[in-house]
Structure formats: C-alpha cells, structure tokens
Nucleic acid binder design. Structure first.
Lengths: 231, 231
DNA sequence: TAAAAAGATTGATATGTATCAATTTAGATA
DNA sequence: TATCTAAATTGATACATATCAATCTTTTTA
C-alpha cells in the first residue's frame, strides 16, 4: 500500500548551509574576503527582481520573503528564517539578474557574497558544487510542493498550511510570535485579507488556534493538519 | 522605466543538454556504458513519484509531462519536448526517490543513465557540475514562472499561455499538430475540460485560433499574447 | 458495418472566494 | 491625552469557474 503523499506550502529545507561544510579554511577565508555583512530594517528590500545579481546572500538573522512580482501581482515563493541562503537560482549561465525579489519581515542581518567569488569556488571545488546541486534540487522539490499546495488546495487548507509552517518550521514553537500582519499572511497563503480574517476567526471559534494580538498558538495540531491535508 | 515583467506557463529551457558538452570522450563513453535506451508508448509512465530514483533520464524523442500527484489531484509541472533531461531534482543528498512522475504524450525514446554514474561525474568534473547547477537554476526560474502563471492568471490567460507555449516552444510551428486531448490541455492549464472547450470555442469565434480535429493554428498572435499576459 | 466506448460540446446550476463598503480596533504622532 | 492613520473585522454582493447532466461526435472494437 503506497503511503499517502502530502504536499505542503512550507519552504524550509533541511540543511540550508551545507555547501560551506565542503570548503577548506583558505576557501572560507576567500569567501570572507569577498563578502560584506549588512543590516536591514523590517520591510526593506534585500534584492530586487531584474536587478544585477552581483552577490549571493546569506540571511544570518531575521525573517524574509522571496517573491515574484509583475505590474499587478506578487507571488510569495518562500518565507525564509535565518540561517538560509538566498539567490542560488541566479547562478545559471548567461543570466545576470535576480530572478526574484526578497524583502525582510523584521530587522535582519545579511551576508552578501560576491557572486564571482562564489562561482569560482563552484568551478574549483567539485564537492562544493555537488552541495550546491543538492541544495538547488531540494529547493526545487520544496517549491514544487508549495506550487501544488497553492494551486490545488482551497483557502482553509492553504491558511492551515501557513500556520503549521510558521509553528513547525519557521519558529519551531506551538505558540509563535505574530510578526506578520494579516496582509502578510494573506499574501503567503495567496488569498484576500478578508478571507484570512474570516478563516482565522473560524479556526479560533472551532478551538484550533488561539489568536492574540502578538501571537498565535496551535491548540489542535491534529485537526489543523487534517484541514491542511484535505485542502 | 522598468520593462514589464512577463511570466508564462511554458517550461522549456534554453540549452537542455549543455552539461554533456563539458565531458571528455572517456566520460561520454563512461555515460554510455552506464545507460540504456528504452522505447515508451503513448501514455506510459516513465518514472513514478516516490519510486527509487535509479537513473537520470534523457528524452531523446517524443513528448512528455512531468507532474506531481497525490490521492485526489495532479499538477503538471512541465511539458517537455525532445531533447530534454528528466530527473535532476532527484539529485539531492539523502534522497532516494523521484520527486515527481513523468508520462509520455506520444511514443517516445528515452535514455536511462545510471544515477550513480551520473553522480560520480558531478564529483569528479567541476565544469560538468557547474552546468548541472546552471540547468537546475534555470529550471527553478522556469517553474517559478509557471507557478506565477497558474496562481495569478485566470482561465483565459492560462489557456492562451498553453497554446502559445505549444506553438512557440514545443512544436515551433504556428500550426501545430494536436496530439493532446482536451483533457490533457485542461490539465496543463489547470482547469476543467468544460472550461477548456468553452474557451477554445471563444478563441475560435474571435478569430484568434483555428481548431481542426488534428491541429491548432495561431491566427492572431498579438491578441493571444495580450490575453496570456493580462491573464 | 454495427455496437460500444471514449471524447467533445453545450447548457444549467452551485460554490468558493474576491471585491466593495462600512465599522471597529489598534497603533503612531502631535 | 487627543487625533490621525493604519490594520482588522464584518456584512453584502459579484463573479469566475467547477460541477452536474445531457447530447453530440469520433474512435475503437467486435
């Protein structure tokens, strides 16, 4: 009997910095020489879709979203807690620009690594390259799961999914601080702010969650998981 | 003034086999020793989500879809014409299974390369690894575009997108053979069969396309492109 | 060639969810 | 503290699109 396949909208990988394990001390020093660390305030743009991709980023502290945008719309591809890497999809041949935008949800610290230094390590260290392949492959699987989630589940399932992701993968707390607005949550779950409010209220009425002004607590993990899986 | 950003649902990369350019003659021979070529009939499953990923595949002739499936639903991630590679996202550490299924739309020929042979080249040839990175990165950008398209555009835009993709990227013919059923088209555009029929009829009435029993012709590329972009 | 099955079309209806508009609440600023 | 602004909530409505059901067409099979 095949085990049931479950896709979720969460976007956090297992070992987000494993590539750096493959570097020698000299190579790590080389990275450090070719990088700077920058502080960003809440809401600031870390990288802008279409702008020159001069660096690979490591989110060292904070929380950020990665998203696509066009004139009318935006689509959140991932939300990323620290520590995580941003910008690997800019690494393809003949590409010079960031394929997505990134913005902080809270004050954050980010290390910017010169992309040419990063690329030179890829061509000189096959194990490092192997880890980058692994990370890109895993990322693709994660994004595909989110893709499935957003296209096939309806609003209740998607929002349940977001809440579970925040509790289990981002904050790793049943009761997590609410640093995101309803608008943020709505955008992540790809729905309207009004629907987000209504569904949160419903979840609260049904005893699935407790909502405070500055936190949300998962009260009934099992039922919320059911909702997220049924869709 | 920033140029308008356009996402589409098409899923064909620029140089899908470039990694093999980086191999020496011995390495190519090594690949050949560790691969077999298999013929598939229309509708056959090439690889099954969740089954052991024992090989990387090269679609040498034919047309296939790559899709996610769970108990109730399926999501087409890409449609792939020959020549293209299938299975790179299986390459991440600690993973043993295919992260998606693939199935042919027509009789197809596929080369199966032993995944361990493939991985050994990645660790021994950094340029090869670099190209794999490039391909995975490009793939991720392509999938993200399709993700945006399916979540943000509505039915008319999505179907226009599929038709344009078939004409421009898959068949490279304004008038292309219709080897896909309405059900196939509906699945690719992530909508019901009935909506697909209705929209095709509307496009025909409006003079945007000509629909024959065995082909579709793009008559008004400009307006169809507008529809696909507006959504 | 007839019969059966599969695919495509058309119309009527149901439903999930966005949108619009009006309040209410909370937070920031003077 | 009062005032202003942004965020959140609530209700009413509109709309896109799926679903259901019936018919028609094409293809396959006997």
């Amino acid at each position: 009997m095949p085990k049931p396949v479950v896709f979720n909208g969460c976007s956090v990988g297992e070992n987000p910095l494993c590539c750096f394990d493959e570097l020698t001390e000299e190579e790590i020093a080389f990275i450090d020489e070719n990088s700077v660390e920058v502080e960003y305030k809440r809401g600031e743009t870390i990288c802008k879709q279409g702008s020159f991709a001069s660096h690979i980023m490591v989110l060292k502290e904070g929380l950020a979203k990665i998203y696509l945008e066009n004139a009318n719309d935006s689509l959140v591809l991932k939300i990323l807690p620290a520590v995580n890497i941003i910008g690997l999809p800019a690494l393809f041949d003949g590409n010079a620009v960031f394929p997505y935008s990134a913005q902080t949800y809270m004050d954050s610290a980010i290390k910017l690594i010169d992309i040419n230094a990063f690329k030179s390590l890829i061509t000189s260290n096959a194990k490092f390259a192997g880890k980058i392949i692994s990370m890109l492959a895993e990322n693709s699987v994660i994004i595909n799961g989110r893709f499935f989630c957003l296209t096939k589940k309806q609003t209740y399932g998607r929002l349940a999914d977001v809440l579970l992701c925040l509790a289990q993968r981002i904050y790793k707390l049943d009761k997590f601080p609410l640093q995101l607005t309803r608008k943020d949550l709505a955008e992540i779950a790809s729905m309207s702010v009004e629907s987000t409010t209504r569904i949160l209220t419903k979840f609260k009425e049904d005893g699935l969650i407790a909502v405070n002004s500055d936190s949300i607590e998962i009260l009934d993990l099992e039922r919320l998981t059911d909702i997220s899986q049924i869709g």
